[in-house]
């Protein structure tokens, strides 16, 4: 994964993407115990507007030109399937902007904060998301005050109240 992150950081330096943050399962694993997952989700902020495909086209072009292979929704960077996702609403945009900077094997990278991950999972509402929310709450890795603020800002309080019986320990 180290080499993959180096490539993504180079994409920022080359202006292909403005900013990025690791989200999804790999970000959750940063805070929780490891579990099986297929890919690395990278949420990207880009200056281009348009459909998701149009936004992602320059990213794919850049990587394919450098010899990386695309397969389905993934692009394989140094053997790791990576899915690039453009920020698609104010919540994901804020999650990328407020991501924390960490080191992975001496490589600087950005990772979403637990409160944003929980809010995104609540918004996504798949069974595995509820399971992961309950893991976050159980481990006490979420700052409940910050989480409430995120939920209020993004109009997710009702969804939280409606579904908390599914993940409250």
């Amino acid at each position: 994964m180290k080499e993959t992150l180096k490539v993504v950081n180079q994409m920022v330096r080359d202006g292909v993407i403005e900013d990025y943050a690791i989200g999804g399962a790999i970000a959750a694993i940063y805070y929780l115990e490891p579990f099986d997952t297929a890919d690395l989700d990278i949420f990207v902020q880009v200056s281009t507007t348009g459909s998701a495909l149009m936004i992602l086209a320059p990213i794919y072009e850049y990587l394919i030109k450098r010899g990386f292979k695309a397969k389905g929704e993934f692009i394989y960077i140094e053997g790791l399937p990576v899915q690039f996702l453009p920020v698609f609403n104010p919540l994901t945009e804020e999650a990328v902007r407020k991501a924390q900077t960490i080191k992975y094997a001496r490589v600087t990278t950005r990772i979403m904060r637990p409160e944003h991950l929980v809010a995104i999972m609540l918004d996504t509402r798949r069974p595995k998301d509820y399971l992961r929310i309950s893991m976050f709450l159980e481990h006490g890795t979420v700052n409940l005050r910050s989480l409430n603020a995120v939920l209020r800002r993004h109009d997710l309080m009702k969804k939280w109240k409606d579904h908390e019986h599914r993940f409250k320990p």
């Binding site: 694993i29 099986d36 997952t37 960490i102």
Partner: peptide, 13 residues
């Protein structure tokens, strides 16, 4: 497991 360094967790993944 949750308290392991990130690099070690990714190795497990």
């Amino acid at each position: 497991l949750a308290a392991l360094p990130f690099e070690q967790k990714i190795e497990i993944v």
